[in-house]
Simulated scan of single mutants.
Amino acid sequence: MSENNKSTLIVFSGDLDKAIASFIIATGAAAMGKQVTMFFTFWGISLLRKENYHGTGKKSFLEKMFGWMLPKGPDKLGLSKMNFGGLGAWMMKYIMKKKNIATLQELMETAKEMDVKLVVCSMSMDVLGIKKEELIDGLEYAGVATYLAEADDANINLFV
């Protein structure tokens, strides 16, 4: 068996706790010297959205609805369980701060500094009506074939 040094994660969820876990795993793998690719698809794209973007491009009614319904950025995500209208997410962030645990935003910045590759699914962007200018800087855009090529060459592949 040939030894390789790559890991991939598919970030499908737009939930705060799952996003935190994804970035903890990604930065941990990068700290171990692995080349890490995170592939953001469907609801996972929400955490890459700019919080204050008020688009100028033309969108269909349904694309506007997705834009309105999806959270804008990491600070707007709720928990997958026990969210209670945002109270659960607030509690999670509060406890993390009290225990000096990095926020999701800090984990995302650390991942970029560690050269974790952040790839956004272009097909999901088309379905949800999300444009590149709505997303944070430093991203790559590709289809599933690009992710599968990365995954085929990796020894760890996770779906979150």
Results as ranks from 00 to 15, higher is better:
I24P: 06
M38W: 05
F39Q: 01
T8I: 09
L16V: 08
I45Q: 05
F42D: 03
E51N: 09
T37M: 10
K59H: 15
D17C: 08
M38Y: 05
D15C: 09
K50T: 04
T56A: 04
K58L: 12
A19H: 02
K18M: 15
K34R: 12
F42W: 15
M32S: 11
G28P: 10
I45E: 01
R49A: 00
I20D: 03
L48M: 09
I45H: 02
Q35L: 00
G33S: 12
G55I: 03
S22V: 03
A21W: 00
K58H: 11
F23M: 11
T41G: 09
A26P: 07
K59N: 13
L16P: 01
I45L: 11
A21N: 11
V11W: 01
M32L: 14
G57L: 07
A31T: 15
N52M: 00
F12E: 10
K18E: 15
E51G: 06
T41C: 12
T56I: 00
A26Q: 04
L16G: 06
M32V: 09
A31C: 14
D15M: 07
F42L: 11
G44Q: 05
H54V: 14
M38A: 05
F39I: 09
T41H: 05
L9V: 14
A29L: 12
Y53M: 11
G14E: 03
I20T: 08
A29T: 07
Y53T: 10
G33P: 05
I24W: 03
G57T: 10
R49G: 00
G44D: 08
Y53R: 14
M32G: 13
S22C: 15
G14T: 02
Q35N: 10
T56C: 00
M32K: 12
S60P: 09
G28A: 14
T37V: 05
A30H: 10
R49M: 09
S46A: 08
T27Q: 03
G57Q: 10
T56D: 01
L16T: 01
A30W: 07
D17K: 06
K58A: 10
K59C: 11
L48K: 02
F40R: 00
N52K: 07
I25M: 14
Q35P: 02
T27H: 06
D15K: 08
I20H: 05
K58F: 11
S60C: 10
M32C: 12
I45Y: 03
M38D: 03
T56R: 07
G14Y: 01
K18A: 09
M32A: 13
D15R: 11
F42A: 08
D15I: 06
W43M: 09
H54T: 13
S13Q: 08
F23V: 03
I45P: 02
A31H: 13
T27F: 04
K18N: 12
I20L: 13
I25S: 06
G33D: 10
K34W: 11
V36R: 00
E51P: 06
I24G: 04
N52S: 05
M38N: 01
F42K: 06
G33R: 11
D15V: 00
G14C: 01
F40K: 01
R49P: 04
F42T: 05
Y53W: 15
F39E: 04
K58S: 14
I24D: 14
N52I: 00
L48R: 02
S46M: 00
E51H: 01
K18L: 15
